[in-house]
């Protein structure tokens, strides 16, 4: 699979007149399997070295300037590519790294942030959607509240990659239902993948957080 590492072949910066690279899933060629992972690496590598992508010969990269509120603080981010994800802008442009970059396909839930109070997946939300909106990242809660405490106590044995997203989901759940049933907890956490721990730990943590929030009143 040496061609899998031929960056030119997949580099999305290279001139290409169509918006979508033409890859035929039915063709059965060896190239299809690598496409899902490689270009994002190419993209990240290119940006780490040279900043935002360089416009190719075939046309300019459409960029916009975005003003929004992140954790209550007004921010303005210039030159955001229209298809940059909210997660990318939060992590790589604004340095808010609590929301994690997991699968990039909406499966894992590690990138969850609140957009105007609604839970959304940072990786599948274009940054320009946040224009004029209020974004809440896991940083807004620090690690001092009941939810963080309960998650640390019950789920501390895991690697912690999924926890920022789970923390936000738990807070959104408790704001909606102060005493959630186990079914409600399972339902709301179903969008988060954890490879370290079984679900029982998270259900215990959410129950404990709910009781702690209730005690505080």
């Amino acid at each position: 699979m040496s061609e899998a590492h031929d960056f030119d072949q997949y580099d999305f910066l290279s001139a290409d007149s169509s918006n979508e690279l033409e890859i035929d899933p039915l063709a059965g060629s060896g190239t299809y399997t690598v496409v899902s992972s490689l270009p994002s690496q190419v993209q990240h590598a290119a940006e780490a070295v040279a900043g935002p992508p360089i416009p190719p010969a075939s046309g300019p990269f459409a960029t916009v300037s975005i003003r929004c509120t992140v954790n209550g603080e007004p921010v303005e981010v210039p030159e955001v590519w229209v298809a940059d994800s909210l997660l990318f802008v939060l992590r790589d442009r604004l340095g808010r790294t609590a929301a994690k970059d997991g699968c990039g396909e909406g499966e894992c839930g590690a990138c969850l942030v609140l957009l105007d109070g609604e839970p959304v997946l940072g990786c599948l939300t274009p940054a320009l959607v946040a224009e004029g909106s209020s974004v809440t990242t896991p940083e807004a809660y620090g690690d001092g509240d009941e939810v963080s405490g309960a998650l640390a106590a019950h789920c501390g044995a895991g690697c912690g990659y999924c926890l920022p997203g789970i923390g936000l989901t738990t807070r959104a759940l408790l704001a909606r239902q102060p005493e959630p049933s186990e079914a409600a907890i399972r339902e709301s956490l179903s969008g988060h993948l954890c490879r370290c721990l079984p679900p029982g730990h998270f259900i215990d943590a959410v129950n404990e957080a709910a009781q702690a929030v209730k005690r505080r009143g």
Binding site: Y10, D11, F12, D16, N19, E20, L21, I23, V35, S36, S37, P39, S40, V42, Q43, G59, F61, A62, V82, A83, S85, G104, E105, G106, L121, C123, L124, T125, P126, V129
Partner: peptide
């Protein structure tokens, strides 16, 4: 954007 951003994140969509 939940379908388009999967393509964009993979470097397979470059909209005008």
């Amino acid at each position: 954007g939940t379908e388009l951003m999967v393509l964009a994140n993979a470097g397979r969509l470059r909209p005008g």
